[in-house]
């Protein structure tokens, strides 16, 4: 049994966490309510700034015309494909660089250049090369996510404790064994962190790509809305995107938890 003091201590923590949660929810409600009131009273222009009610109506309309899910599906699919491809390519290239320091040194300046280049500048070229379909969007997302993953994972690979590598060598492990039994397991947390960054990077790339070329997807929805001056649609698109990004982020978190339980 706990002592009275410990119970008070536990209660204090519980109350504190509860307060934080309540404040978070309250902040959201106040924001929505104030927005609605300002819009109703015409203090802000409802045509430009929209309002929560109009957004809900807009989303319901999208749902009724069956467009909502198509757009969400397309954006999710594009993000997933580029996320999976980006992670695999990033891992492979980082592994090659770890395996062969010579290659790593040779491509290092090029990685830096590509990394600092604003990828949106490549947009026109990508459209011409890959056409105006999903391919172009995925290439855009890959360009944004792959370089960052390579750099992060490679850094993790090279920062493995020298003494552990010495241990493996003293046990006569070959390079592949060092890689499989030491480098990869000691970098799981770095790889998962890279996955987290990758999800948001891919989403940025996909939306950017949809702005440029697409015929469907949430990026397309936002772009279409702005071109037809339908700000309700634009803000609805952003709102849906918020939810989508949050869901994807928590998916990775739950994978991380499951993996760390295993370890």
């Amino acid at each position: 049994m706990y002592s009275e003091e410990h119970k008070r201590y536990l209660n204090k923590i519980k109350r504190y966490n509860f307060l934080i949660r309540i404040s978070q929810i309250l902040l959201f409600i106040v924001f929505i309510v104030v927005w609605q009131i300002l819009s109703d009273k015409k203090i802000i222009n409802p045509f430009i700034f929209s309002s929560p009610k109009k957004i809900i109506t807009c989303i319901i309309n999208l749902h009724k015309t069956n467009n909502l899910y198509k757009h969400i599906y397309i954006t999710t699919l594009e993000t997933c494909i580029s996320f999976i491809l980006g992670t695999i390519i990033g891992l492979i290239i980082a592994s090659i660089m770890w395996w062969n320091k010579y290659i790593a040194k040779v491509i290092d300046p090029y990685l830096t250049i590509i990394n600092s280049l604003p990828k949106i500048a490549l947009g026109p070229i990508i459209i011409i090369w890959a056409g105006s379909g999903m391919k172009a969007i995925i290439i855009m997302a890959l360009l944004i996510s792959v370089i960052v993953s390579i750099i992060n994972i490679y850094q993790g690979f090279t920062s493995v404790d020298d003494i552990k590598i010495k241990l493996m060598k003293s046990l006569k492990a070959n390079k592949l064994q060092i890689f499989k039994k030491l480098i990869i397991p000691s970098n799981t947390s770095i790889i998962i962190n890279t996955l987290k960054i990758n999800v948001s990077m891919c989403l940025i790339g996909v939306i950017m790509g949809e702005f440029l070329v697409s015929k469907a997807g949430i990026g397309y929805l936002i772009m279409y809305g702005s071109q037809t001056f339908n700000l309700d649609l634009v803000i609805s698109g952003i709102f849906i995107l918020c939810i989508l990004a949050t869901i994807m982020y928590y998916l990775i978190i739950s994978i991380e938890k499951r993996l760390s339980l295993k370890n």
């Binding site: 003494i163 552990k164 003293s170």
Partner: peptide, 14 residues
């Protein structure tokens, strides 16, 4: 056969 014992234990946490 040679066995090495290092300054640090270098145990694998996983």
């Amino acid at each position: 056969k040679i066995g090495y014992m290092l300054q640090q234990d270098a145990l694998f946490n996983w």
